[in-house]
Design a protein around this nucleic acid. Structure first.
Length: 555
RNA sequence: AGGGGAGUCGCCAAGUGGUAAGGCAUCGGAUUUUGAUUCCGACAUUCGUAGGUUCGAUCCCUACUUCCCCUGCCA
C-alpha cells in the first residue's frame, strides 16, 4: 500500500500531536497499544493498532505494546501469544520488548503508600453490595464510607495486611479519597486495589491484591513516558481520574511526565459482532470453530479467511479517526480487501457446477499454451494450460434461450474460452428428463491468441479440462449474521455462512502453498487454508467475491 | 433525570467567520481474452432544528432536538 495515502488523511489526534510538536511540548512522541490478554484481537483492535502504531511511525516516535494484565482471573498466556502474533502479522513492531502492567506492580504498590501517606487513600471495609449503595446514583450524591477518615497509620497497617493476605477476598479495598458527591461517578472514591487470590500469568502467587485499571493504566503510561494515550470513547469519563492520579504523582516528582489521554470512537461493523463476550458465545456454542474461524472479525480469523494485512490497514485508514459514532458496512472492509488482492492474487480457473462440452473439431489429444498467472502483473509468471477435446464450463455460462445482453454461451453463439479458442455452440444434448447434459461446440482454429477476422466476439468464459482438472474443496463464506445489527443471538446467526462445495480446478492450482491467495477467474478470491491444506490437496477458503455489476442488475 | 461526548452526501470523513476536501458506494461512458481490473465524467446552493450576532455563519451565541457512554472490588 502506498504510504502517502496514509499520511494524507488528517484527523483530530494528528492535529493535536502536530500542535504539541510545534509548540515544543514534545520533541518526540510515544504511544502505546494496551490490550488486556483476555481474548483474541479483532477488527476493532486493528483500528486501535493502526492508530497507535501508525501515529508513532508517522511522527518518528515509538509505540509500546503493553499488556494490561491487572485482572488475573480473565487473562492467560494463550492470549498473550496470539496478540503478539496478530500484531506482527499486521506488520507492526512494538518498541523494545513487550511490556506488562504487572511489570509495575511494585511501583504501583509504593505509589499507593504515597496516596495513603498523603491522606488521599484509605482502606474500606464495605463489601461490593454496600459499596454500590454508598456510591449513589446519577442524580443522587454518594455517601462517604464509614472508613473514610481512618488514620494514615491505620490505613498503612490495614493495607499492609491486605497485601499479606490477612483478609478474605473481597472483604477490603483500597480507595482513593476524592469526592463522593462528584457528578462523575468515577471520582466517587474509586477502588484502586482489591483482594483477589488468583494466580497471575506473570507474577504467579506473589500478590493477593491487584490494582485496578484506572489506577494502573495512567501510571503505566507515565512510567513509559507515553506522550499521547489514545483509547476509545468510553474512557472519556475516566480522564478526570487519570489526570487526578497522574497530577498528584507528577507534582511529587514520582512520575517523569503527565501523558495526555485522547479518546476516539470505536469501529462498528454491520452484520457482525466484535464484543469478546459475543464472540466467545459463538465459540462456546460451537456455531463457529474457534477464535480463528474465517467468518469471525478476529484478526486471526480474517487472516485465515485470506484478508491481507495491507487490506486491513487500508480499511482502517479509510475509516479515519474521529469522535463521531459510526457504523460501517461490511462491504467497506471487503472492498479494501479486494483492492489489495487485485494485484497480489494469481489467476487460475475453476469450475463449480460443470457442464460438459465436446469440441467436435478438436483434432489433437491435447493442446498446451503458456499463459500468465496475472494479466497485468508479469512478475507472477506463467503456467502451462492444456486444452483437451472434452472440457467443463460453468452451467451458469450457458443459456438455451438467452436473455438480453447475454454475453455468454447460447445455441449458435460464439464466445471465447479464457486463454484459448473461440468456440461456437453447435448442438445441445439433453437427457430423458430434458436436462442439458452436454454441448457440442466447434472451435475456430485461427483464434488461439488472436482475434477472429471480420467479427467481434464479446464473451469470455472460464473452463477446465475434463481429463486434467482436479477436484478440490471450496469453503464458501458469507456474512456471520443475517441481521445488520446483530446482538449476538444464535437466532440471528447465518447458518449459510459456511457452505462447503466441490470444484474442479486446473492442475497447477493444486500446487500452491498454504496461505497462497488466488483468484478463480470470474468466481472470486480464495486462499489455501493455512491449517487444513495438505500438499497437493489444498482446501480453499473464499476470501471475497468479485464485484459483479451485471449480476447485481439482473437479479 | 446528573455528568461526559457526538450530530457535514447512502457509508466514512476533512474543513473553517469569506462562501462545502477526499475516500467508498452509486450512476453514465471508454478500454478489456475475467460482465473483474483500468480509465474518464457525474454525484451536498448545503453542514440536526429554530432563532440571534455579523457585510458575511457549517464554523460564534441562545434554545431545542436526536444518538452514544457512565451507578464492576472488569478493562
Amino acid at each position: 500500500m502506498n504510504n502517502e495515502k496514509i499520511k494524507s488523511a488528517p484527523n483530530f489526534i494528528k492535529n493535536i500531536i502536530e500542535e504539541d510538536l510545534k509548540s515544543g511540548k514534545h520533541t518526540h512522541i510515544v504511544t502505546r497499544f494496551p490490550p488486556e490478554p483476555n481474548g483474541y484481537l479483532h477488527i476493532g483492535h486493528a483500528k486501535a493498532i493502526c492508530i497507535n502504531f501508525g501515529l508513532a511511525a508517522e511522527f518518528n516516535g515509538e509505540c509500546n505494546l503493553r499488556f494490561d494484565d491487572t485482572n488475573p482471573e480473565k487473562e492467560n498466556a494463550e492470549f498473550v501469544n496470539s496478540i503478539q502474533e496478530d500484531i506482527k502479522w499486521l506488520g507492526f513492531q512494538w518498541h523494545d520488548k513487550a511490556k506488562y502492567a504487572s511489570d509495575y506492580f511494585d511501583q504501583l504498590y509504593d505509589f499507593a503508600l504515597f496516596f495513603i501517606n498523603n491522606g488521599l487513600a484509605y482502606v474500606c471495609d464495605l463489601d461490593a453490595n454496600q459499596m454500590k449503595q454508598y456510591r449513589g446514583t446519577y442524580t443522587e450524591d454518594g455517601v462517604n464510607s464509614p472508613n473514610r477518615n481512618r488514620s494514615v497509620a491505620e490505613n498503612l497497617e490495614l493495607f499492609n495486611n491486605m497485601k499479606l493476605g490477612k483478609y478474605a477476598d473481597g472483604s477490603k479495598t483500597l480507595r482513593l479519597k476524592i469526592d463522593m458527591s462528584s457528578p462523575n461517578i468515577n471520582l466517587r472514591d474509586p477502588v484502586i486495589y482489591r483482594i483477589k487470590r488468583a494466580h497471575h500469568i506473570r507474577t504467579g502467587d506473589k500478590w493477593c491484591i491487584y490494582p485496578m485499571y484506572d489506577y494502573t493504566h495512567c501510571i503505566s503510561d507515565a512510567l513509559e513516558s507515553i506522550t499521547h494515550s489514545c483509547c476509545s470513547l468510553e474512557f472519556e469519563d475516566h480522564r478526570p481520574l487519570y489526570d487526578w492520579i497522574v497530577a498528584h504523582l507528577y507534582a511529587a516528582k514520582l512520575l517523569p511526565c503527565h501523558p495526555q489521554q485522547i479518546e476516539f470512537s470505536r469501529l462498528e461493523l454491520l452484520y457482525t459482532v466484535t464484543s469478546k463476550r459475543k464472540l466467545n458465545q459463538l465459540i462456546q456454542e460451537k456455531v463457529v470453530s474457534g477464535w480463528n474461524d474465517p467468518r469471525l472479525p478476529t484478526i486471526s480469523g480474517m487472516r485465515r479467511r485470506g484478508y491481507t494485512a495491507n487490506g486491513i490497514k487500508l480499511f482502517a485508514q479509510r475509516c479515519g479517526v474521529s469522535k463521531s459514532p459510526n457504523i460501517i458496512d461490511f462491504e467497506f472492509l471487503e472492498n479494501a480487501i479486494r483492492e489489495e488482492l487485485e494485484n497480489e492474487a494469481i489467476r487460475v480457473m475453476a469450475v463449480i457446477k460443470p457442464l460438459k462440452i465436446t469440441l467436435i473439431n478438436f483434432d489433437a489429444t491435447t493442446k498446451s499454451k503458456s499463459v500468465p498467472f496475472h494479466q497485468h502483473q508479469a512478475l507472477h509468471g506463467e503456467r502451462e494450460l492444456t486444452l483437451t477435446k472434452e472440457i467443463y464450463i460453468e452451467q451458469s455460462d450457458f443459456m438455451e434461450r438467452p436473455i438480453e445482453n447475454w454475453q455468454r454461451l447460447a445455441p449458435g453463439k460464439e464466445i471465447r474460452l479464457r486463454h484459448s479458442y473461440i468456440i461456437k455452440c453447435e448442438q445441445v444434448i439433453k437427457n430423458n428428463a430434458n436436462e442439458i447434459i452436454e454441448l457440442k461446440c466447434s472451435l475456430d482454429p485461427l483464434t488461439l491468441g488472436a482475434n477472429p477476422q471480420g467479427r467481434k466476439v464479446k464473451g469470455v468464459i472460464h473452463w477446465v479440462s475434463c481429463t486434467l482438472a482436479l477436484p478440490v474443496k471450496l469453503r464458501m463464506y458469507d456474512r456471520l449474521f443475517t441481521t445488520a445489527r446483530p446482538h449476538g443471538e444464535i437466532s440471528d446467526f447465518n447458518h449459510n455462512s459456511l457452505v462447503e462445495i466441490n470444484a474442479l480446478i486446473e492442475p497447477d492450482a493444486t500446487k500452491v502453498q498454504p496461505e497462497t491467495r488466488l483468484q478463480f477467474e470470474r468466481i472470486g478470491y480464495f486462499i489455501a487454508d493455512r491449517y487444513d491444506s495438505k500438499p497437493l490437496a489444498p482446501i480453499f477458503n473464499k476470501i471475497v467475491d468479485l464485484k459483479n455489476t451485471w449480476l447485481e442488475k439482473n437479479k
